[in-house]
Amino acid sequence: MFKDHAKIMHAVFAAGEISGRKKLQKIIYIAKKLSFPFHEKFHFHFYGPYSEELTLRIEELCNMGYLNEVKEKKAGYYQYCYSITDSGKEFMKMHDMEIPTMEVCLVDMNDQSARFLELVSTVLYFEELEREEVAEKIFTLKSKQKYTLEEVDEAYLYIEQLKGKAKPQ
């Protein structure tokens, strides 16, 4: 059980502070799709791939004092920021799992906007479809986001860049 918790903590630690629940969900999903060792099950939701398991594990880690969750007021909404606590760092020492290529990808993903990661994760969710079908799904399912064809192309390019970074050295 705690191995999956430790992987999430490692991801948060490697990425640094992660701003937003949606962003955290997307980072873990994309990392999983890049074949990093995350086992949470995801299904398609309002904001793209979502895992109830991941939500529960994050809540448990916060309750155990291993993750810090800070609620910040933004323009008209609240955003939750996640970081590792000192207790979390101690726990991680017992569950060593250094994966350098994953750390590079996590930092890179954390530098992206939640909106872009939502697009990237949606592309990955429908990756078995032809590119045109994926774009049509995005324009239909994510119409409120008003993604452009250029942004969809950027998402595909970004996925290829991440795959290149994810390969073992």
Results as ranks from 00 to 15, higher is better:
E160V: 00
K7T: 12
E40G: 11
Q79D: 11
K93P: 02
D108H: 15
E118T: 05
V120S: 02
Q25A: 05
S87R: 14
R57T: 14
M9I: 04
Q25W: 06
E127G: 07
Y78P: 10
V12I: 13
E59A: 14
F46D: 12
P49L: 09
L61M: 09
N110Y: 14
F46I: 11
I27K: 01
Q79S: 14
F116I: 11
H43G: 03
D86P: 01
M92I: 10
G88T: 09
H39V: 10
E118D: 10
Y66C: 02
E59L: 15
I159M: 04
Y50N: 02
L67A: 08
Y82E: 05
E118C: 07
G48P: 04
E60I: 08
L117S: 15
H5I: 13
I58N: 07
F13L: 09
K163F: 00
V134S: 06
M94Q: 11
L56R: 08
F38S: 00
L162R: 00
S113I: 07
A114N: 09
G76H: 11
V134L: 07
H95K: 13
Y80D: 11
N63G: 13
S87N: 14
P49W: 10
A31C: 15
G76W: 09
E128N: 14
F46N: 08
Q112D: 05
K23I: 07
E72W: 08
A14H: 02
A31L: 15
C105P: 12
V104C: 01
Q161C: 01
Y29A: 11
F13T: 06
I28Y: 03
F38G: 01
T140C: 02
E150K: 04
Y78F: 15
E154T: 03
Y147L: 01
K26D: 06
R115N: 10
F38V: 03
S113T: 14
G76V: 08
F42K: 06
K23T: 04
V12T: 06
Y158V: 00
V12R: 04
L149E: 14
A75T: 13
F13Y: 02
K23P: 02
E69T: 08
K165D: 01
N68F: 14
M102C: 04
E136G: 00
K89F: 07
K73T: 11
A14K: 02
P100D: 00
A11E: 10
A155T: 01
S87C: 10
Y82W: 05
M94K: 12
K26R: 02
I159H: 04
E133D: 10
Y29L: 11
I84R: 05
V104Y: 00
L119S: 06
K165Q: 01
R57C: 15
T140H: 03
S35A: 09
P49K: 12
E127S: 12
K71P: 04
Y47K: 03
L117W: 10
I99F: 00
E103N: 13
H39T: 15
K142F: 04
T101L: 01
A6M: 03
V134M: 07
A166S: 06
D96F: 13
L24C: 00
F139Q: 09
K93W: 03
S121L: 03
T148W: 01
S87P: 05
E128M: 10
K32R: 13
S121R: 02
L162Q: 02
K73Y: 13
V120L: 14
C62P: 04
P37S: 12
D86I: 08
Y50C: 10
M109E: 09
A155C: 02
